[in-house]
Simulated assay, not measured.
Amino acid sequence: MAFKDDLKTLLKPYYWINILMSFSYLLAKKMPVVCSYTFPKSDVLCELDGRESEILLLTLIVVMIRSRKSGSLTMINYITASFMYCKVANLVLWTYADIRTGILYAVLFLVLAIWIPEPTYNGPSNVVYFRTAVSLEDEISRNKYITWLICFYTTWNPSCANFAPIFAQLSAEYGLNNLKFGKIDVGRYPDAAKKFEISDASTSKQLPTLILFKNGEEVLRRPTFDVKGKVIRFFFTADNIKAVFDLNNLYKIAANKTNNIAKFKIKDTSDRKLN
């Protein structure tokens, strides 16, 4: 099902247009009709020279390394993470071939970035957004019967962007009145990062960070640190979140509490009517 969903997602204009942009130079070189028109003065018609091959190989290595570091696990995440590097490489290649084609590609690059932005998640969500560490602490301590799962994130971090739809889906699936999901942007509100000891630097390996609060206190977080103080890598997949934070059990406990409170209210109302 996930693979089929990814294929449907790839049909959206943003993805197939960016895929074409990412492979534009290679396609132009390998399609004889296009190649003879685009590179009429090429010494070796429709063949990559040594410099072009080096640029493409370097791009492939960078994409693999950066995609892995960003925590990209699904096909869509891998593809999205690679777009920028591939398009920059194509810009270099088109400019290397002819400054005019390089300028044309750059203009097309900018126009498409403005008019066809990356699609955002628009499915069901039950997330509460906080603006300061104080408001977050006040809400967590206000009612200690509520269990909170809070995501600390930044808008510019690729791992946070990849995790956003997963967290939204989990909030819709598991969210209850006494089991809530919240988010706070530590890039905009660094006081929250400082309060909960999360690095918001551009090289931070703590983004995103998930913290589970019970009875107003932190009980679990991911990622965490090893004995040497280094961040232990954590893959933010739905299955990992469910397993580590025991969401199924948390949901059952929260649902039982909700049902018990509802039964008590019904019984109390019935007793009052009888009296």
Results as ranks from 00 to 15, higher is better:
residue 40 P to K: 06
residue 47 E to N: 15
residue 152 F to C: 06
residue 79 I to C: 07
residue 100 R to A: 12
residue 139 E to D: 12
residue 179 L to G: 01
residue 25 Y to D: 13
residue 266 I to D: 05
residue 9 T to Q: 07
residue 31 M to V: 12
residue 26 L to W: 11
residue 27 L to V: 15
residue 105 Y to M: 08
residue 189 Y to D: 12
residue 181 F to I: 03
residue 101 T to W: 08
residue 190 P to I: 00
residue 155 T to K: 08
residue 125 S to R: 12
residue 79 I to N: 03
residue 10 L to P: 10
residue 40 P to C: 04
residue 56 L to I: 02
residue 114 I to Q: 14
residue 19 I to Q: 00
residue 8 K to P: 00
residue 65 I to T: 13
residue 173 E to C: 09
residue 253 I to M: 01
residue 78 Y to R: 08
residue 68 R to F: 08
residue 58 L to D: 01
residue 154 T to S: 12
residue 217 E to Y: 11
residue 144 K to W: 01
residue 224 T to L: 12
residue 195 K to Y: 09
residue 28 A to F: 06
residue 171 S to H: 11
residue 131 R to Y: 14
residue 269 T to W: 02
residue 79 I to H: 04
residue 236 F to P: 01
residue 130 F to V: 11
residue 227 V to D: 04
residue 56 L to E: 01
residue 255 A to E: 13
residue 232 I to M: 07
residue 212 L to F: 07
residue 64 M to G: 15
residue 158 P to A: 01
residue 43 D to W: 08
residue 27 L to E: 12
residue 223 P to W: 11
residue 36 S to Q: 14
residue 236 F to S: 06
residue 202 S to V: 07
residue 76 I to Y: 04
residue 206 Q to K: 06
residue 21 M to D: 13
residue 165 P to H: 03
residue 107 V to F: 04
residue 256 N to P: 04
residue 217 E to I: 09
residue 195 K to C: 10
residue 66 R to G: 00
residue 159 S to R: 06
residue 123 G to Y: 06
residue 218 E to C: 09
residue 219 V to S: 13
residue 74 T to P: 02
residue 224 T to D: 15
residue 233 R to W: 04
residue 254 A to R: 01
residue 235 F to L: 14
residue 20 L to E: 04
residue 84 M to D: 09
residue 20 L to W: 14
residue 94 W to E: 13
residue 3 F to M: 10
residue 253 I to V: 03
residue 191 D to P: 10
residue 272 R to E: 08
residue 88 V to P: 05
residue 234 F to V: 03
residue 108 L to V: 09
residue 132 T to G: 15
residue 90 N to K: 04
residue 244 V to W: 10
residue 181 F to L: 01
residue 29 K to Q: 10
residue 132 T to S: 14
residue 149 L to K: 00
residue 178 N to C: 09
residue 33 V to W: 13
residue 8 K to V: 05
residue 264 F to Y: 15
residue 229 G to Y: 04
residue 177 N to A: 13
residue 242 K to P: 00
residue 155 T to N: 09
residue 205 K to M: 07
residue 223 P to A: 11
residue 178 N to E: 12
residue 213 F to E: 01
residue 227 V to I: 14
residue 228 K to E: 04
residue 9 T to N: 08
residue 146 I to F: 15
residue 81 A to W: 00
residue 181 F to P: 01
residue 18 N to A: 06
residue 13 P to L: 06
residue 80 T to H: 00
residue 234 F to E: 02
residue 169 Q to S: 07
residue 204 S to F: 05
residue 257 K to A: 05
residue 25 Y to H: 13
residue 272 R to K: 15
residue 117 P to C: 02
residue 148 W to Q: 07
residue 83 F to G: 14
residue 53 S to R: 08
residue 211 I to A: 11
residue 13 P to R: 02
residue 226 D to N: 12
residue 188 R to I: 11
residue 196 F to C: 10
residue 260 N to C: 11
residue 254 A to G: 02
residue 271 D to P: 01
residue 103 I to D: 11
residue 20 L to V: 15
residue 265 K to H: 07
residue 168 A to W: 00
residue 221 R to S: 05
residue 262 A to Q: 13
residue 89 A to K: 03
residue 77 N to Q: 15
residue 28 A to L: 01
residue 275 N to G: 13
residue 106 A to S: 14
residue 170 L to S: 09
residue 82 S to C: 05
residue 71 G to Y: 08
residue 92 V to Y: 08
residue 55 I to N: 10
residue 33 V to D: 12
